[in-house]
Simulated scan of single mutants.
Amino acid sequence: MKRVIVLMSVMFLTLSYGQEIKQVPQITVSGEGKVKVIPDEATISATVETKGNNAKEVKQKNDQQIDAVLKLIKKMNLAPADYRTQRVSLNPQYDYEKKKTSYNATQTIEIIVRDLNKYDELMEGLVNQGINRIDNVVFQSSKLAQHESEARKLAMKQAKHKAEDYVSVLGQKIGKAMTISDNSQTYYPQPVYATMRKMEMSDSAAPRETLAAGEITITANVTVNFILD
């Protein structure tokens, strides 16, 4: 009997406590912060693809072209840590109509360009040395952490300002924040850049620009729950 009384007392206290919490005046708002920056570096995924009827010859030709590409990269004084082989494959492809097997070899290199002034020269050199596929180009900022921090602060300021706007009409003020939820998603948009063409110089030998880096937007989103005074 005593256990039942104690249990009922605990349940009553818990319910009472829950009711008290629910009665605290609160407001929940969201905030968004955006920072637009000009990218200062790019990551290029470039592939050499070769095909033929002899697996050994196909692989050798692919290796030769990759060797030329790596020599170009070293010649441009890119740091060893800024390029790496990302993917290597050699696959048989059977033609059921001709009843013959051919082979397809690919090697993909990921290159980080930390000086975008080298972008056009590098892209031209890659094509000349045997790269026949540019899989992806992603532009980014070397100060990403700094810009993300700034975006988070702007999101919090907007949330606070929004809450103040709402409660000012009621003659109240916002107090301490009870909860803060970070709803941000990491996203690296790819700015518009010129489609890669054959990197040939015109008759006047004038340099050709193929890059429009644009801007990237770093966004932070928060949800904040304030107590009302």
Rank of each mutant, 00 (worst) to 15 (best):
I21N: 11
L154Q: 13
S149D: 02
Q146A: 09
L211W: 06
V113M: 00
Q23E: 13
Q64R: 08
Y166L: 07
I73L: 08
L7S: 11
I44P: 02
I227Y: 02
G125D: 05
Q140N: 15
E121W: 08
S89A: 06
M199P: 00
G31Y: 03
E209F: 07
V167E: 04
A68H: 02
N128H: 10
K22I: 06
N136F: 09
I174H: 00
K176I: 02
K99E: 11
P25C: 13
M156E: 04
K100T: 10
V35Y: 00
V137H: 00
K36E: 15
I44E: 00
D40R: 00
V10Y: 08
A42M: 09
R87P: 00
E121R: 08
T217S: 03
V192T: 14
G175A: 00
V222W: 01
L170D: 05
Y103Q: 06
V88I: 07
V88R: 08
K173C: 02
V167S: 06
R152I: 04
N221M: 08
Q23A: 15
L70M: 08
Q185P: 04
P80F: 09
I21F: 14
S89N: 09
K2D: 13
L72E: 04
Q64I: 05
K153N: 07
Q146T: 13
D115G: 10
T179K: 02
I73E: 04
K56V: 11
N91C: 11
P191W: 03
L122H: 04
T43M: 06
G33I: 02
R152H: 08
E41R: 15
Q26M: 11
K100P: 05
I38Y: 02
K51M: 07
Q185K: 13
I44W: 01
M199A: 06
L144E: 07
L228V: 06
Y119H: 09
D67H: 12
Q60N: 14
K98R: 15
S102Q: 12
L228P: 03
V10N: 09
N117T: 13
Q19M: 11
L90C: 08
V24E: 06
